[in-house]
Nucleic acid binder design. Structure first.
Length: 318
RNA sequence: GCCGCUGUAGCUCAGUCGGUAGAGCAGGGGACUGAAAAUCCCUGUGUCAUGAGUUCAAAUCUCAUCGGUGGCA
């Protein structure tokens, strides 16, 4: 029905599991007419280049990226930061007449970008987290769960007794506000300042795993051990927020255990990447309104995008 | 060539006195309210190498065949 007059910004959201083939596709589809908003919780960190499969300089020159290299590894980045910065970037890109393209593999960021964070829920508080962590170590997670069950029976009923981080987050909210986390309702309506085009990329599992294996080999050969060594020599311990990531944590674990070889480490990185890819797919499958494609079906994807843009491109034209 | 050991889940292996099998890892499925590459939950059917025999009953005992492996030549 023609082009509706609307000032919503049209957005392409393109996601898929690690190593599915997003990078090549995105360059072909959007070079010269779009800019990328990175949706990857590790690529936001400086110095984590090889292990996060960050696009290199020449790639970034061909296709500008936002939200890459914006934090040091000891800084905690989070979902709220992501949404705020992504909103700013989207407005900026669209304002220059280009297509904003959110692409990456962090499903949690995609989800919360679309539906928005729970209104009124407080941000994380490092002091409370530290205190909760101490209590967890002293008294065990069961005790904290029991406390949560009293404070927020609804939320406690939804999560598992062993789910440390969620239990601690819920208690953190309760201790800050005196209100249960579940009282800050998050409805699943998409935020209405955008028109969304959700594209999921996937492959046969076997094929995906082969690509993951190959990518890890390439990372090892192209200097991942050296990248991690440099981080360690700069005084980092592996406990920093940015380093709790596949491809980095395995090296620090290797150091702790002492008895692992480089090839054992590579094996673990491969395995953890496969499991991660599986979790990503589970999460992406739960998002509503996604059109799924094989990343090599470029023509189909391109037609799909063009048809979306022709319906919603009012604010991009003239 | 001879003697010994061995063949069970994708891999490594367990399986008692014969009663049609179970661990670890890998794998599979799922959850997701400001740490998310995080955190957490659920999940084990497989020609017991093949063929024949003994037996009410064979992964288990016997024989043959075909693999693997160690020793002696």
């Amino acid at each position: 029905m023609g082009t509706a007059t609307t000032n919503k910004i049209p957005l392409i959201l393109l996601f898929g599991p690690t190593a599915v083939g997003k990078t090549d596709l995105v360059l072909e589809l959007f070079r010269g007419r779009g800019e990328i908003i990175n949706v990857d919780s590790v690529q936001v960190y400086r110095k984590l280049d090889i292990g996060s499969a960050k696009p290199d300089k020449s790639y970034l020159e061909k296709l500008p990226h936002h939200l890459i290299d914006i934090r040091d590894v000891h800084e905690q980045f989070n979902t709220a930061d992501f949404i705020r910065l992504a909103d700013e970037a989207a407005a900026d890109i669209a304002g220059r007449g280009l297509i904003p393209v959110l692409t990456g593999g962090t499903a949690f960021y995609f989800k919360n970008f679309c539906i928005g964070l729970a209104q009124g829920a407080p941000p994380g508080d490092p002091a409370i987290r530290e205190k909760l962590e101490r209590e967890r170590l002293e008294r065990g997670i069961q005790t904290l769960w029991t406390e949560l069950e009293k404070a927020d029976p609804v939320y406690a009923g939804k999560i598992h007794v062993n789910d440390e981080l969620r239990i601690m987050r819920a208690l953190e909210v309760f201790r800050q506000t005196g209100r249960p986390l579940s009282s800050f309702g998050q409805d699943d309506k998409f935020r209405d300042q955008y028109e969304y085009c959700l594209i999921g990329l996937t492959r046969e599992r076997e094929e995906l795993y082969r690509r993951i294996d190959r990518r890890v080999d390439i990372m090892m050969e192209s200097g991942l051990p050296g990248e991690v060594k440099a981080l360690a020599e700069a005084g980092l311990t592996g406990k920093e927020p940015g380093l709790d990531a596949i491809g980095y944590r395995e090296f620090f674990e290797m150091k702790e255990r002492g008895c692992m070889t480089l090839s054992d480490t590579a094996d673990r990185i491969r395995r953890n990447s496969r499991r991660y890819a599986k979790r990503q797919l589970t999460f992406f499958h739960s998002l509503p309104g996604v059109s799924w494609f094989h990343p090599e079906k470029k023509k189909e994807i391109s037609l799909f995008i063009d048809s979306f843009l022709s319906k919603h491109s009012v604010s991009l034209l003239t």
